[in-house]
Amino acid sequence: MLLIEADAKQMLEDAGLPVPGERSLYAPGDAVRTPGGPVAVKAQVLAGGRGKAGLVRLVDAAGTADAVAAVQALLAAQGTTALVMAERQIDIAQEYYLAWRIDDLEARPVLMFSPHGGVEIEAHGESLRECPVDPLRPVRPQDLIPFFREAGVGGRTLGAIARFAADAFRLMQAVDADLVEINPLAVTPKGDLVALDAKVSLDDNADVRHHERARLVSDTLQRAGMTPLELRAAGQGFTFVELDGDVALFTGGAGLGMALVDMLADAGYRAADFVDAPGGSGTAIFGALSSLIFARAERDDVKAIILFLTLSATSLKGAVESILDLLKVQAPPKPLIVGLVATGAAEREMTRSQAQAAFEAQGHLCVTELDDAIAALRRIAPPDGVLRA
């Protein structure tokens, strides 16, 4: 879950990291009372480039009338679900970029830093440095001093930014985030550090450990934009995204799902959903996901259903039986094409051939290749005749 800036800054503040003070969050219809003096007014949207899009306004007037007008203007520009944050402006002597992220390939956290922060960070890509760390060892400020020194940080700022980075790493671990990005990290004329903007992305797989996330404004916003089926999936702990398409998909793994989405588009179809049932999931999840896919396929815009699973660790027998149990009480609302690939431990209780035979016994077409699934789809439900990009 990606957090709005207001939620991200509250997390930083709760962890003892410096952020601008006197923050207020406003929705349409709220009475706006901003502090006097220079104020930064920012639309709370889950997208970058707010400054270039005119969604950040700096109000330098001593009175509050201009700040109130700026808040109301940004609320009006976004619609009924708009949120706007106003906070005290900070004097800036220097801007840095600092972030912690998870490197999926290296399977460890990486510190990213550039001495050029702010809205034009992309123009200074050559200045971005990375420092991978051992996830099993604590990150101490003194460990980061050489990295920041080589990046050009000196004076009293060197120790301060090393402490800030170490504290940000502890926050990342505490909240189970996969990204904590500060851009810009400002140095004031007095030499203090302040996080002027913050982007935090929380690992959805850790929701079970963080019931406090339900109180975040970001969680409410995310759920407000979700369909009933998406909310149902979220409540069961897996990913389901509704799309405007004509083929309902049930795939095991996000990579396979994206490949099928692309193959469908090349063949003249569109996916009606995207689902992620990651490897290692309990077998009961397959029955629950099948129920969601069938609910999506009941609508008139869906022509067929493709169920394609590639399993190497999760038991093929458990997955197949959970889906077959559903098929016994709920026939698929549209023609069903089943693709199965299983290797290693997945076949310890049932082979792929046995699984295919079980589906074919109920009258469902089985394939083993993605191309064969698309070919079968063409026979069962031809595309409209115009290839869609």
Rank of each mutant, 00 (worst) to 15 (best):
366 C>M: 03
377 L>D: 04
258 M>T: 06
77 A>S: 15
70 A>N: 06
42 K>D: 04
129 R>I: 08
334 K>F: 01
332 P>Y: 00
362 Q>V: 11
62 A>L: 13
234 A>N: 05
245 G>N: 10
196 L>K: 07
239 T>R: 02
83 L>R: 15
157 T>R: 14
185 L>W: 00
373 A>Y: 05
227 T>M: 13
13 E>F: 04
78 Q>F: 06
309 L>H: 14
218 S>N: 08
167 D>Q: 13
38 P>R: 09
152 G>A: 11
48 G>Q: 06
33 R>S: 13
242 E>F: 09
103 D>P: 02
378 R>G: 13
135 P>H: 05
6 A>F: 12
196 L>A: 11
204 D>N: 12
11 M>W: 02
349 E>R: 02
77 A>K: 15
272 A>Q: 12
177 A>S: 12
117 G>E: 03
356 Q>S: 08
15 A>C: 10
134 D>N: 12
321 E>K: 06
299 R>I: 02
195 A>K: 07
368 T>Q: 04
280 G>P: 09
389 A>S: 14
368 T>G: 05
178 D>S: 13
369 E>Q: 12
21 G>D: 15
291 S>K: 07
101 R>W: 00
336 L>K: 02
303 K>N: 06
241 V>Y: 14
225 G>W: 03
258 M>E: 00
41 V>L: 09
16 G>I: 14
188 T>W: 02
367 V>M: 00
151 A>L: 13
74 L>Y: 13
268 G>I: 15
11 M>P: 06
64 T>K: 10
175 V>T: 09
198 A>W: 04
71 V>G: 12
332 P>G: 06
134 D>P: 06
355 A>D: 07
145 I>W: 05
301 D>G: 08
125 G>I: 11
100 W>R: 10
113 F>I: 03
250 F>N: 03
140 R>Y: 09
259 A>Q: 08
374 I>K: 01
97 Y>N: 11
329 V>D: 11
126 E>S: 15
296 R>C: 04
350 M>S: 03
100 W>H: 12
262 D>M: 05
234 A>M: 14
252 G>M: 10
51 G>W: 12
162 A>Q: 09
61 A>E: 15
322 S>Q: 15
15 A>P: 13
17 L>E: 05
57 R>N: 02
295 A>Q: 10
92 I>C: 09
200 V>L: 03
106 E>K: 05
309 L>K: 02
45 V>K: 04
31 A>Q: 15
202 L>W: 15
171 L>F: 01
129 R>K: 15
169 F>E: 07
44 Q>T: 07
197 D>M: 01
